[in-house]
Write a protein that binds this DNA or RNA. Structure first.
Lengths: 226, 226
DNA sequence: CTTCGTAGTTGAATATCGTTCACTTTCAAG
DNA sequence: CTTGAAAGTGAACGATATTCAACTACGAAG
């Protein structure tokens, strides 16, 4: 690269870098506050303070509070997608991959503390989850159906029903209305939604699964800045 | 009754009757406003105005706005329960009753205009629905399981998953993200959650059902006062 | 019929919070 | 160095859930 290009890149970087830092700081702050107090109780002022920006700056990055909440959830879903990817790594059979993916979602949604407050806006959570993880799952279901392993007529419908059931179940576990011990049994039931035999679902889920590597393990979204 | 008792009843009645009228008027007004604008956009002042009471009076009957919304939903669920009762009247087989009940819930949640705005608070809706219709359904599932027709290990878990799936599905239909034509197919899928064979569920649902009598038909909660 | 205490009603006042906007600061290009 | 556009700021705004001190209606007692 020429010196001029290099100089330009550095000069442009000042503003661009600050913007990126602000956006990340805002999502991190919002994630923290919303996880602590719930989405409704989190105030824009506290989020702005924690991100070290003025109250008005938030609106340069997000159109509204709901917009910010959705951005936080997209981030959370990104982490969930990583976990699914890692947990299903190495499996071939689509039905098996789907079974493990569902179990991973259930486990994550009920054990990650960040989900606890966020799930109270279950509508948004289900929406974002459907958008973020939907394509992967729907494709999986479609391929399973084509291979004859599942009787899934409409993969989108099946996954939509499953998504909302998962969110509702997660909410119930967090509120201690159902025992975490029934997570596997819930997963088996959910398999039925897509046309898998209960016995087969149980067999798939009971096989030993690899432990997740630490970098995929649960951790707060907020981390030390470099 | 003695004249004194009668006199007492009338005198006591003045206050008591006004209170009952206020409570009913408030729920009716809240139902109207919330159905029109959504729960969040409905203001306590407009609700109070439409019920012809002062703004402060609302808080003599309901602790908070959420409390009022829950009361409205209880009322809506009461109507749903009536519809289920009527639609399943005359059937003997528990699995059949369950199938029709699920279909009725799906149809109601996706066609009653009142639900359209209310469903946006899907968390509350699912909670109230679980409380209101849960016992009936759970009992039904437990009896079906005992008779060997279903393989439902935990009826409560099964109905909880089903409830949230229904609410989420209703939301999706209202937002036109899935076609109403898939309501029956969703119902059949939901049957799988409780351990019914898809083919059997389809058979149960495709039998002709009686039309609902007018008094159970969909109608706005608000009615002319006498 | 009159009086009195209680329970219910009221709506103006309060507090909170999401959002806006007129002004200031930053910064890269010329 | 100058400059103007882009980004940041926080005080001010508007909306609205909730509170509360004053007010009213009612029914019981004398």
């Amino acid at each position: 690269m020429t010196p001029k290009e290099s100089e330009n890149r550095i000069k442009e970087g000042r503003v661009a870098r600050r913007q990126r830092r602000n956006r990340e700081a805002l999502i991190r702050a919002a994630s923290d506050v919303m996880s602590e107090k719930g989405i409704d109780a989190a105030t824009m002022l506290e989020i702005a303070d924690r991100a070290d920006v003025g109250a008005g700056t938030v609106y340069n990055y997000f159109r509204s509070k709901d917009d910010l909440a959705i951005a936080v959830l997209e981030e959370v879903m990104q982490g969930l997608a990583l976990r699914i990817e890692s947990a299903t790594d190495g499996y071939e059979d689509t039905a098996h991959i789907y079974a493990i993916a569902v179990l991973t979602v259930l486990e994550t949604a009920t054990s990650d503390p960040r989900w606890q407050q966020l799930l109270n806006r279950s509508g948004i959570v289900a929406d974002v989850m459907f958008r973020r993880i939907g394509p992967f799952t729907i494709d999986l279901l479609a391929r399973s159906a084509r291979s004859g392993r599942l009787q899934t007529g409409d993969p989108t419908l099946a996954w939509r029903l499953t998504t909302h059931a998962i969110v509702g179940f997660g909410l119930a576990v967090i509120r201690k209305e159902v025992a975490p011990v029934s997570i596997p049994s819930a997963a088996i039931r959910l398999m039925a939604l897509v046309g898998l035999e209960a016995a087969e679902a149980e067999a798939l889920l009971s096989r030993p699964r690899p432990t997740l590597p630490p970098e995929i393990a649960l951790q707060p979204l907020s981390s030390e800045e470099k």
